[in-house]
Computed example of a mutant assay.
Amino acid sequence: MGKITVRNIRVYAYHGCLNEERLIGSDYLVTVEVFSNLEKASASDNLNDTIDYVLINSIVKQEMKISSNLLEHVAKRIINRVFNEVKAAEKTVVAVSKINPPIRGDVEMVTVTLKEKRP
């Protein structure tokens, strides 16, 4: 079993329960880990035998464009897309972080992490 990680994809998006968050938007970081058998790819040196991280990046950017109230909902949509489009994915972990969330206090970011095995 191996793992491909696409770490800290930077996106500006419009998520949140407050109207201001959905109008103004904010910065986000998304990390996706995809677990798969990478043995064939390690021997073949062929992109078709591994997880295409360009596709993972594209999925994240597309899903982050869809406004949601909760980061949990966004993370779940990303996981669903990974399982639908990456047949070799056996397990996926998605972390969505809102940088400088609009809460009282000095908070760098809030992160929601979901982890699922292929159904």
Rank of each mutant, 00 (worst) to 15 (best):
G2E: 12
G2T: 03
I4R: 02
I4N: 02
T5Q: 07
T5G: 00
T5V: 15
T5K: 08
N8R: 11
N8M: 05
R10L: 11
V11A: 06
V11T: 05
V11H: 10
A13L: 03
H15A: 08
G16K: 02
L18M: 14
E20D: 11
E20H: 13
E21S: 05
E21T: 07
S26I: 00
S26F: 04
D27G: 04
Y28K: 04
L29M: 03
T31L: 07
V32C: 13
V34Y: 11
V34Q: 08
F35Y: 15
F35W: 13
S36L: 09
L38N: 10
E39H: 13
K40R: 15
K40W: 10
A41F: 14
A41H: 13
A43L: 15
D45S: 03
D45A: 07
L47S: 08
T50M: 10
T50S: 15
I59Y: 14
K61P: 00
M64H: 13
K65T: 01
I66V: 15
I66H: 10
I66D: 09
S67E: 11
S68P: 00
N69M: 09
N69E: 12
H73Q: 04
V74W: 06
A75R: 09
K76Q: 13
R77D: 10
I79S: 11
F83C: 04
N84C: 08
N84Q: 15
E85L: 14
E85T: 09
V86K: 02
K87V: 04
A88Q: 15
E90A: 03
K91T: 05
T92L: 04
T92Y: 08
V93Q: 11
V93G: 01
V94S: 12
V94P: 06
V94M: 11
V96K: 03
V96L: 07
V96Q: 03
S97Y: 09
I99M: 15
P101Y: 09
I103G: 01
R104C: 00
D106F: 06
M109Q: 11
V110Q: 02
T111A: 03
V112G: 02
L114N: 02
P119C: 02
